[in-house]
Amino acid sequence: MKEKFLPGERVEDLAEYLSQRYRLWAPAAKEGAFVFAQVVDAGDISMDYSTTLLPPKHAFLPTAEILASVDLQTGEADSVRPDDPPPAIFGVHPCDLNGLARLDQAMREPPADAAYHRANAGAFIVGLACLKKCRPEAFCDSTETFRPNGHFDLHLTPMEGGFWTSVQSDAGRALADDTGLFEVPTDRQRAEYEHVRRGIETTFAGRRLNLKTLAADLPKIYPHRMWEKLAERCFSCGACTAVCPTCVCFDVRDEMSDGCRTANRCRSWDSCLLKDFAVVAGGENFRGRRAERIRHRMMRQGSYLARRFGLPVFCVGCGRCPHVCLGKISPLDVFEQCQKEVGSGVGRAA
């Protein structure tokens, strides 16, 4: 990995450079909150944002999209998206970098998702380090996702006078050289960066989970009355999955348009919390009860997909779901309770 320094006053120029070559997604203010939006003017970017309402996942996996269209008169199918420039996502916090990496793992697992691949091809990701926790509900410290994971092209760490820039990919290196915006860091800057980096480690040192055993612990409490208790606080509304960086489930429906001249295969985000998510032919629902559905989400985030993809935990601790959950359900509390039940927890630091 190469390292460079980006003077603070040039960060807008970097965004401007990206916006000329990519469809630029960046954090922007919306009614006192933040969203990842397609920005036209680099001046609209909020570098000092807490966290966004939705993670940047929708740059690659839109909330609703048409996967293929068939002209019913000619029988010709068209599954090629418009020839847009590839997306660049700018200013992605470490939790969301980890989220994008997990999304990528899930969508590339054979059979790889063709539409996701097309949306992702040639994408450019610029990470942005967090120096402090964005909100009390976040638990990226416990999931150890406060560090960038390598799933980026460039990663910016705010420090005095600008941004320490880690260059991860060939595309990142080429871009950094081409822009002419970056400087070779001085020894003083390197020392300052080391100081900032150590500060991040200290700030995010709290651990309420034992990540070594979490994925194995959760299935042990599959039959447990805690899920019924939890379901009392669950609307089963799917808000948690809608804002989740690592939820990848979708629904596919065929719909007509243009006076039934065209049939569209439409994909939209789905949620395992929804009552009819697990309904199969014949009307059978194998997760018909709220408790079964909220348990499934916790198992999936804490165990199933973690084990499948060789990770300690699939959840990235971004804190969005406990923030939007009106029943105040947090995966952190659930995981912690689980580890208390099976006796493997770390307990609260004294």
Binding site: T63, C237, G238, A239, A242, V243, S271, L274, V324
Partner: peptide, 10 residues
């Protein structure tokens, strides 16, 4: 049948 909440988040 998804509740309004779900679509609101999207």
């Amino acid at each position: 049948t998804a509740p309004v909440c779900f679509e609101c988040k999207l």
